[in-house]
């Protein structure tokens, strides 16, 4: 009985000091907002870069090809946190862009490399006979891509793209390295005030899990829908 009372007191203290006192729960919500915004901007930029790089990778132009694969190799071969810091201090730190803008560019550039590879894989997974059939009917390469290959590739790409953005959301947890107040950093800020490491980070973990669970749910729906006409 005494043990239970002790536990209750510990828990309610933890919740009070980490969430209620000074409206600290607002910090977490604000942090989540920043993380989501960052993920959204980076995702949009990542798709744009990914499309351009994927097509650069698939053209016959050797120079474009080299540049694109060099970009992909550099991004995939170095830690995201290092890329973030380099882009922040060396490239964008001197500009007047707000921190979230800098971080969005950095994560967008990072995500673009992975998205480019997803798109390329999705297009190359379409059976070679499809292109031949389209060409044999008289369609040009471009028309064949547009009417035949891309619509089929999208089915391969979309689910993988959603997975990539789930990864991206979790990846943005390193944004604190450039002192951006994202969800993870808010956990750290609360920890430094309450000297309690467990509670704020368990709250942070639950909030990430909540969002990724929603995304995973939609991913499952999307995958089922995509497989209907196959």
């Amino acid at each position: 009985m005494g043990f239970l009372i002790e536990l209750y007191k510990t828990l309610s203290d933890a919740i009070y000091f980490n969430l209620i006192k000074d409206d600290r729960y607002l910090l977490f919500i604000k942090g989540l907002g920043v993380s989501l915004k960052l993920t959204l901007y980076a995702a949009i930029l990542g798709i744009i870069i990914g499309l351009l790089v994927a097509f650069a990778r698939m053209t016959k132009n050797k120079v474009l090809n080299k540049i694109a694969s060099l970009y992909i190799d550099i991004i995939r071969g170095t830690p995201a946190v290092v890329q973030l810091v380099i882009i922040y201090y060396a490239i964008l730190g001197s500009s007047s862009l707000p921190k979230i803008g800098v971080a969005s560019v950095a994560f967008g550039i990072n995500s673009g490399a992975y998205v480019a590879e997803l798109i390329r894989a999705g297009i190359q997974a379409v059976d070679k006979g499809q292109m031949e059939a389209a060409r044999s009917l008289g369609f040009s390469y471009g028309q064949s891509m547009r009417y035949i290959i891309i619509p089929q590739a999208i089915k391969n790409i979309l689910p993988a793209l959603v997975s990539e953005f789930i990864v991206l959301l979790k990846e943005t947890a390193i944004a604190g390295y450039i002192a951006l107040d994202d969800l993870t950093r808010m956990g750290d800020i609360v920890r430094s005030r309450t000297f309690d490491a467990y509670t704020p980070f368990i709250v942070v973990a639950l909030m990430y899990l909540y969002v990724t669970s929603i995304l995973t749910y939609f991913l499952g729906k999307l995958e089922r829908r995509m497989s209907i006409s196959d």
């Binding site: 006979g129 031949e132 059939a133 389209a134 044999s136 009917l137």
Partner: peptide, 15 residues
């Protein structure tokens, strides 16, 4: 190619 029709072993219909 519009004037030359082709039929493939693997059909290659657009799924």
């Amino acid at each position: 190619r519009q004037r030359v029709g082709m039929v493939f072993q693997q059909f290659n219909l657009f799924p």
